[in-house]
Every structure is written in structure tokens, then in C-alpha cells.
Nucleic acid binder design. Structure first.
Length: 716
DNA sequence: TTACCTCGAGCTCA
DNA sequence: CTCGAGGTAA
């Protein structure tokens, strides 16, 4: 007999614990998801404490899906990155905020599917677009193992600890045995039944199931939370969305647990395929109903809709109900219901073609223009910015709104002292919509772009055909120097950790730093004299500078801040030439050979390196010890289609649209959207439309898929 | 663009 | 306690 056996739990305890877990799951589901408690709170608490007591006695029997495991857990050091098995894509936004905007979507779908006016209406699902944060919940063998934020769509953050505390999110999905009649199950089990068409149950829980949805905060919970915050002398949250986002990013799950979050499921990520015993669905709606049965909160407002008219009606109806919903939404989402049609429609770059977000018109508010500032960018570009009396609009306090350039400022005729309508356009950027002219009391001066740089006083000029004024001061202009330094020191460039805008302001204003190489000549004493810069901070900056000296060619090139050379172009240049000297001395024609470098970019690079002081900066940086590994120039890939422009139309027999496009681009060709004289070839498939007619009209060569492939293989 | 969380460190006052 | 910097999200 091993010693372990002495401590073996009573078989009764094991069974009782399983039983308690199941009851608590079921009651919890009724309470949190269905909002219909099946037992009094006191009874729930009693069961919960009984389970806790048993778990205290048998810690080895605690399961990750135990209801007691929602709260607790230790504060994290940080959030671990999580790669999404299926990327979390963004969804296209319909720009038209009239209810009839839905018609554009329907028309586009019908066109893509090649449907005529006499074909039947398309089956859609319409749902509210919740204003919260996207979340992916991963279940393995039915147990919640990971909750991840969206991140960049490919890689998000692991916030499982915090998401576990959400009572609405099942910790476990339960499947009854195969052949069980779902309707005969007691309600608390039926909620977890895995549905198949026809009521048949799934043989087992899918090995993998990722549920996608939105974490949000209800308005009443938000108000209550803020009342609590006020009482506790803590600061209040500005809006429910930010409160929810903040809660999710808490390192201490105990704090996250006190923030009342909610969840709505709206889709799936990775799922075990049917061949491997996974569930089968025909439509999105059916899938959502299954999610509901499995215990996930699915909004009652998710509706099926036939064709454009019902989508338009849905948009209007939800807009009507919006204020009374109890939570914030920023629009609605339409999805093609049939999963088969979704597959057929596919994706454009990173967005599904079968879904669209249709937002409500942005909220607008009145405020006054306190001033119109002119900011100077890294390249000397002058940007007029309206300084506004703070207004709360669309959930945030707006104090600035860019006027972009002189033409834009003139077109809107914004003047100091004006009363203006502001809104948060599109996603986030505040915008001055218009001026209320009848509120203009005296006649303030029309805004004009200063002909001198507001920072350095150099002439500001507007080139022929350009919208922007630029300060001609170059490095004489402290604003440009500051911006150049910040650009060089940013993370994606040469990364000098700890060098932010406040420090750069101090360094430049004090005249300690004028050029990039001056950064590396900084002394400890000079640094330590600055405000909020004692010994420790000064040393940290010096260490960061030392570390930054080891860099890479693309980072360095990007960091130089050459006009039109962003991260992608810097990478392409580095790959193509291998060495910096080769780039610095390359004639424009050589630069043009780099993928994605056109005449404007080539000229800009040439101009930059033709200036002696820029070459001097590079030499000095090298002399200061900034280095990077240099490589060999990449052999120029065979580009049989370079210089040729293609237009795709109709459905090709084997290649998808995206595939064909990628192949053409990989071979150096360009793919355009419409046919013109400059089009080299039109590639036509089945049911080609007007583009084919246009091609014939203009006498552009027409290819079929086979001929395209021949060209790609290097044929004439 | 704004808001939120976190971290390290400086400043201030006891 | 407050600030600056850095990161994330929409």
C-alpha cells in the first residue's frame, strides 16, 4: 500500500464534488446568462461553500473548471502573448450611416455572387455591434483553457485569469451522451447540450472550440462601479468601454473580479472539424443557437433577415431601441447567414466579404474654438489644429481637432472664437463638422497658414500641386529636430528606451542636442542636471543609448526619417542592397529596381543622401559606434510580369481572386480594379461582366486562366 | 485621438 | 504622491 492511498479521498467526496460543480454551473448559468435565478442566493452560497470546504480538504481534486476557481489566482507579472489559431479579423465598415446603407452591402453581395434582380433575397443575420473589447475564448475538451484579447489579429494577450471571473462565461461545456433526447433533459443540463441539426446530440464535446465575442460593461453596472469608486475616493471611469478595457488589463484578478463585466458571443474561431467529430452547421444563425444551448450568452437581438429591406428595418429598429438597451452599441453588423455562401464570398485582404459593420451616425456636440495652433512635423509639414473648449462627445473629452491643411481649414472656414459642431469621425479621430455662422459675433480673421514657421521663423512654402506648407528651416528648426530625434529613438526604429517627448524637449531646448549624433555624445553630468532626471534616470538613458548602438540596417534606415521611407520601404531597401553605402550611392534607376519603390520614393532617397549634412550625420553616427550587420545585395528575382498591369474579372476555374492577385504581384505585375488604356491584360473567367466589354472596347488583350499561368511561368 | 493600466523613479513632506 | 514613458484598445 502506498502512502498516497492513506490520503485518498472518500469516493463519496469525489462524487459529491462533481455533483456540486455541476449544480453550481447550472445555477450560475441560469443566474448570469439567463438572468433567471433557479435557486435563492443563499442556497447557491451554501453549495459554493460546501464545494470550497471539500476542495480545501482535497486540493488535488480541484478542477480548472470549478466555480470556485473563478476568483483567486495571484497577480501576474504581465500578459503572455497568444497566437490565435484562426486570426481575429476586422470587419469592414459601411460608410453610409443612413439606414439605407444596408442596401449597398446587399447589392455588393448579390453582385459578388452573380445574382440578378429576379433571384431570391439573400438570407442574412443582423446583430448589434457591442461597444466593448473583442475576446477569444478557447475550450479544450470542453474546459475553458484560455481567454485572449484581439491584439493585432494574429497575436493577442492571455487574460484568462481576468476573464474567468466573468460569471456569464462558462468554465465548462457539457455534452450529454450521444442519442440523448435534448428536450428530455433537466433544464440545467439541456443548456449545455451540444446541438446538431435535428436535435441529435454531438457524440462528444469538440476537442477544440474557440468562441469569439465581446466583453463589455452594462450601463447600470458602470454607474454602480463609479458610485463605488467615488465612495472609495478612487477616480471614476469615463465610459463603460474604457472601464471594461481597464478591467481586462488588470494584472491582479482580484481587482478584475470587482469590475462587473458582461459578455456576448458572436462567432467562432478554431473548431474541431466535422471529420474529427466536430459539430456541423449550415448557417451562422444555427451556430449562434448552438452556442446559446452550450451556455454562452447570445444576444436576443440577433435576428435573421431576408434581403436588404429587412436589414434596413433592423438598422432603424435597433437605432430606436439604442438608448434603452442597457449597454452601449455603436451600430449593427450584417452577416451572410449561409456558411457555404460565406466560404464562396471569402475575404478581401484581412476582411471577410460576407460581413459588414454599419455604424450609427457619430454623436455631435457644440463647442467653441479657443485657438488654431499650427504644429510642425518631422518633415516640416505645418498642420493647423483647432484647440477646442473641452466637450464630452462619443464617450471621450475632445480638446483638439486637426484641420489637416490650409484648404481644409478654409473650406470649413473655422475661425478663432467660432462655435463649431464636433464629432468623433469614423473610429477615433475628432473632427470639426461645421461652423455655426449665425453664432459668429464679430468677424474674426479668416484663418491663414503662416508664411513663417511658428517655431523657427523660417519661410514656410507650399509647393505647386501640394496641399501642405512646409517649414524650410530643416535642422535649423527645433521642432523638426525634436521630431527627428523622437522618430529615430522610437521602438520600431533604433529604439532608445526612455527617450520620450518631454526629455527631448528639455535636451533640445537646453541646446544640449542638435543632431542625431549628439545623442551619443551625451554626458552623465549634462543629463543629470535636467528636471526629473536624477542619477538613476540619467544612467538608465545612457545604458539605453549604449544598447541602441547595436541595431539593424532597416531600423537605422527607417530611423533616419527619409521622406516616403517607412518601415516597409526600409526593409525592402535593406534586403535589396544589403549595405548602407550601396543605398547612399545608388542612382535613381537602381533605386527604382527595388520592389515598391517608385519615382517619387527614389527621388526622395536620392535627394536625402545628396545633402552633405545628411551624409555627415550618418558618418558621425557610425563614428559614435552605431553598427549593424550588413549583408549581400539580394539577387534580382526573375520578374516576368514587371511593369504590366492586370485586371481580373469573373470567376476563374481554379484560382481564387486573391490567389491570382498574389501570383501576379509575386511576379512583379500590378493588379488594378478597373480597365483603362494602361491595362496590359484583362484576365477573364466565367460570368465576366462589364470589365470584359470595356477591354474589348479599348482593345486590351484578354487572357483566360491557362494563358495567365503560362505568362506567370515566364512565357511570352 | 483619448483613456486606461503598469512601471520606475523623482519630488515632497513628515 | 506625481510624473513620464511605454503599451494596448477602439
Amino acid at each position: 500500500m502506498s502512502t498516497l492511498d492513506l490520503f485518498a479521498p472518500e469516493p463519496d467526496d469525489t462524487a459529491r464534488m462533481a455533483q456540486l460543480r455541476q449544480s453550481l454551473h447550472a445555477h450560475g448559468h441560469s443566474y448570469y446568462v439567463l438572468d433567471a435565478p433557479t435557486v435563492p442566493d443563499a442556497e447557491y452560497d451554501r453549495l459554493f461553500r460546501e464545494l470550497q470546504a471539500l476542495e480545501a480538504r482535497h486540493p488535488e481534486l480541484i478542477t480548472p473548471d470549478s466555480p470556485t476557481q473563478r476568483v483567486g489566482g495571484k497577480p501576474l507579472d504581465g500578459f503572455a502573448p497568444v497566437r490565435h489559431a484562426v486570426p481575429m479579423l476586422s470587419i469592414r465598415t459601411e460608410t453610409d450611416t443612413e439606414a439605407s446603407g444596408a442596401e449597398n452591402f446587399d447589392a455588393r453581395i448579390r453582385r459578388e455572387l452573380g445574382l440578378g434582380p429576379s433571384d431570391p433575397a439573400i438570407d442574412y443575420v443582423a446583430e448589434p455591434k457591442f461597444d466593448g473589447l473583442a475576446m477569444s475564448l478557447r475550450y479544450q475538451q470542453g474546459v475553458l483553457v484560455q481567454a485572449a484579447t484581439r491584439g493585432d489579429g494574429e497575436v493577442g494577450e492571455d487574460v484568462t485569469q481576468n476573464i474567468r471571473t466573468l460569471g456569464q462565461i462558462p468554465l465548462r461545456i457539457v455534452a450529454p451522451a450521444l442519442g440523448t433526447d435534448v428536450s428530455s433533459l433537466p433544464p440545467e443540463v439541456a443548456h449545455f447540450a451540444l446541438g446538431r441539426p435535428g436535435g441529435e446530440t454531438c457524440p462528444s464535446v469538440p476537442a477544440v472550440l474557440e468562441v469569439r465575442g465581446e466583453v463589455y460593461m452594462r450601463r447600470d453596472d458602470f454607474e454602480a462601479l463609479n458610485d463605488r469608486q467615488r465612495l472609495a475616493g478612487q477616480k471614476c471611469f469615463v465610459n463603460p468601454r474604457n472601464a471594461a478595457a481597464g478591467a481586462v488589463r488588470q494584472l491582479d484578478p482580484a481587482i478584475a473580479a470587482q469590475r462587473p463585466l458582461s459578455f456576448y458571443a458572436y462567432g467562432l474561431g478554431a473548431v474541431t472539424p466535422p471529420e474529427a467529430g466536430g459539430p456541423v452547421w449550415q448557417s451562422h444563425f444555427e451556430m449562434m443557437q448552438a452556442l446559446k444551448r452550450w451556455g454562452f450568452p447570445v444576444s436576443e437581438l440577433v435576428k435573421q433577415a431576408q434581403g436588404a429591406p429587412e436589414l434596413v428595418a433592423y438598422y432603424a429598429a435597433i437605432g430606436q431601441q439604442r438608448d434603452g438597451l442597457g449597454f452601449d452599441i455603436d451600430g449593427v453588423v450584417y452577416k451572410v447567414n449561409s456558411l457555404a455562401l460565406q466560404r464562396q464570398l471569402g475575404f478581401v485582404t484581412r476582411e471577410p466579404r460576407w460581413a459588414v459593420a454599419h455604424k450609427f451616425p457619430a454623436q455631435e456636440m457644440l463647442t467653441t474654438v479657443l485657438a488654431i495652433d499650427v504644429q510642425v512635423g518631422r518633415t516640416g509639414k505645418l498642420t493647423p489644429v483647432a484647440k477646442l473648449a473641452p466637450v464630452f462627445v462619443g464617450g471621450v473629452t475632445v480638446t483638439n481637432a486637426t484641420l489637416h491643411n490650409e484648404d481644409e481649414a478654409r473650406r470649413k472656414d473655422v475661425r478663432v472664437g467660432d462655435t463649431v459642431i464636433v464629432r468623433r469621425a469614423g473610429d477615433v479621430i475628432p473632427e470639426v463638422v461645421s461652423v455655426l455662422l449665425d453664432k459668429r459675433l464679430d468677424e474674426p480673421a479668416v484663418f491663414t497658414m503662416p508664411r513663417q514657421c511658428p517655431v523657427c521663423g523660417s519661410a514656410a512654402v507650399r509647393e505647386e500641386g501640394e496641399a501642405d506648407y512646409r517649414c524650410t528651416g530643416g535642422l535649423f528648426c527645433s521642432a523638426q529636430r525634436k521630431q527627428s530625434l523622437l522618430h529615430f529613438a522610437q521602438r520600431r526604429a533604433v529604439e532608445v528606451e526612455g527617450l520620450g517627448d518631454k526629455l527631448v524637449d528639455q535636451l533640445v531646448d537646453a541646446g544640449i542636442i542638435n543632431t542625431l549624433p549628439d545623442l551619443y555624445r551625451l554626458g552623465f553630468t549634462a543629463l543629470a542636471k535636467l528636471a526629473r532626471m536624477a542619477d538613476k534616470s540619467a544612467q538608465n538613458i545612457l545604458d539605453a543609448l549604449e544598447k541602441s548602438k547595436q541595431t539593424t540596417l532597416p531600423r537605422f534606415l527607417f530611423g533616419l526619417g527619409i521622406r516616403h521611407v517607412g518601415e516597409a520601404t526600409a526593409k525592402a531597401l535593406a534586403r535589396h542592397f544589403g549595405k548602407l553605402d550601396a543605398i547612399m550611392d545608388a542612382p535613381e534607376e537602381a533605386l527604382l529596381a527595388v520592389a515598391d519603390v517608385g519615382p517619387i520614393v527614389a527621388k526622395s532617397i536620392r535627394t536625402f543622401f545628396d545633402q552633405a549634412h545628411n551624409r555627415e550625420v550618418v558618418e558621425q553616427l557610425r563614428a559614435c559606434g552605431v553598427t549593424w550587420p550588413e549583408g549581400e545585395p539580394a539577387p534580382v528575382a526573375a520578374q516576368p510580369l514587371s511593369g504590366q498591369t492586370f485586371v481580373l474579372t469573373g470567376t476563374l476555374p481554379t484560382l481564387g481572386r486573391e490567389e491570382a492577385k498574389a501570383l501576379i504581384e509575386a511576379a512583379g505585375g500590378k493588379v488594378a480594379g478597373s480597365v483603362s488604356k494602361k491595362t496590359s491584360f484583362v484576365v477573364a473567367g466565367a460570368e465576366a461582366g462589364s470589365k470584359l466589354d470595356k477591354a474589348r472596347e479599348l482593345g486590351v488583350a484578354v487572357l483566360d486562366e491557362a494563358q495567365l499561368k503560362e505568362l506567370l511561368d515566364g512565357g511570352a
